[in-house]
Simulated scan of single mutants.
Amino acid sequence: MPQTEIPGIGAGPRTRLRWWTELPLIVLVYACYSAGRLLARGDVSGAVDHGLTILRVEKFLHLNAEHPLNRLFTRESWIGVPADFWYASLHYLVTPAVLIWLFRSRAVHYRMARTWLMTSTFIGLIGFTALPTCPPRLLSAGHGFVDTMAQYSSYGWWGGEASAPRGMGGMTNQYAAMPSLHVGWALWCGVMLWRYGGTRTTKVLGVAYPLLTTVVVMGTANHYFLDAVAGAAAMGVGLLLAPHVLRGADRVKARFEGHGSLVAARSPDTVAPIVSAGCQTSAGERIPRQRESRIGSGAEPGASSTDAGDGAPAAAR
C-alpha cells in the first residue's frame, strides 16, 4: 500500500550528500543553538513570573498534569530514576541516531527532514530569547514541585542543575523552558520513524517516544504542559518554513556555483583557437596549420610564431 506524503517533508531533489559536509553543518547549527541558549539568559524574576503565569493558566484550564506526575516520580524511585536518565540522555542520543539512519537509508528524504529540524530549533531559540521561563523545579517549594534530578542525582552523572554534568551547571541556561525542544525533537523523531520506518515496531516507537517524553519532562518538573504544546507548535511552524528555507539555500548555492563557473571561464590560462572569418571548430578538432594563442600569455603584438604543421616561420608563408 503506497504511503502518503506528509506536506513539506516529501522526497527532495536527488542531490548527492556527503557526510563530511553534513556533519560540520549539524555541529555548527547545534553550537549556535547552545551558544544562543546561554546568551538568551534573561532576568530571573521575569522568568519566574512567566513560569507562574503559565501555571495559573493551566490551572484555570484544568491542564495541570505536572503536580500528580511529579508526586508519582518523587515517591516511586523505580519510575523517577529511569525518567531522569530518559530526560538527561535520550534527547542527545535518539535525535542524532535518527538523522544518521535517514542519511544512510532514506537519503532522498534527508535534506528536507534535516532542514525541518534545524529550522524548528532556531524557532525554539527565538522562544527562549523572547520568553525566558522558570521551569517548575526551580519555583519555590510552596508551589509543590520537587526537582527529581536533584533528588536522584546520586544515580547519574548530573548534578542539581538540570541535565548538565556535575560542575558544569553554568554551561546551561536553566530558564529556557518555553518551548520544550525535548518534546519538539522527540516529535520530529516520532514522525520520521512513523513515516519512514516501514515496520509496525518503528511505528509504535514513533508514537510512544514523543508521548513518553512529554510525560517525562512534566514528571521530572522540567517543563509545564504548555511548554510541551509550544514545542510541538515550534515543530509545526518549522515544517511550514522548511521548504522555503531549502529553496533559499539552493538559490544561494546555485548563485555561488554560477559565479565560480564564470571566474573559471575568464581564467588567463584558457587556450582558445584562432580561426579566421569567425569559423568555429568543435571540441578537440584541429585544422591543419592552425595557430594557437594563449590568452593572457603576454606575447607582444606582431611577434613571430611557428606553424604547428611544418615548423616554417609564419612570415615565410
Rank of each mutant, 00 (worst) to 15 (best):
L102H: 04
I100Y: 09
I100K: 04
G144L: 06
L90Y: 04
I100D: 03
G124I: 09
S89T: 14
E66I: 14
F103E: 03
Y87D: 06
R104V: 15
L90T: 08
L102G: 07
G127S: 03
E66P: 04
A107R: 11
H143R: 06
H91A: 13
F145G: 05
G142H: 04
V98E: 01
I123S: 00
D147S: 03
L99Y: 04
G127Q: 02
M118F: 07
T74A: 15
D84E: 15
A113D: 07
W116I: 01
R104Y: 06
S120H: 04
P96L: 07
L117N: 00
F103N: 06
V108E: 13
T115E: 02
T129K: 09
P82D: 01
L69H: 04
L125M: 08
H67I: 15
P82L: 03
Y110C: 08
A97P: 07
G127V: 02
G144S: 05
L63V: 05
W78G: 13
A130I: 14
V146F: 09
V108Y: 05
Y110G: 06
W86I: 11
N70E: 06
D147M: 02
F122Y: 08
S89G: 10
D147Q: 05
A83C: 08
L102V: 13
A88F: 07
T74D: 11
A141S: 08
R75L: 14
A130M: 14
F122E: 00
A130R: 06
G124S: 08
R114F: 15
T74P: 01
L117K: 01
L99S: 08
L99A: 08
H91D: 14
L72Y: 06
T129L: 14
L138A: 06
G80Q: 02
G144R: 04
P96C: 06
L138D: 07
A97D: 05
V146W: 04
A113S: 11
A141R: 08
G127P: 00
A97T: 12
W116T: 03
S105G: 13
T129H: 09
E66F: 09
W101H: 01
A65C: 11
A130Y: 04
L138G: 02
H109F: 15
T133E: 02
N64D: 13
L125T: 03
A88Q: 07
S105K: 15
L63R: 09
T115I: 04
R106I: 09
V81I: 15
L90S: 07
A130G: 10
P68T: 05
F145Y: 12
R75C: 10
I126G: 01
A107Y: 09
T115Q: 04
P136A: 04
A107Q: 09
L131A: 04
A65M: 14
Y87F: 12
V146T: 14
M118K: 01
Y87H: 12
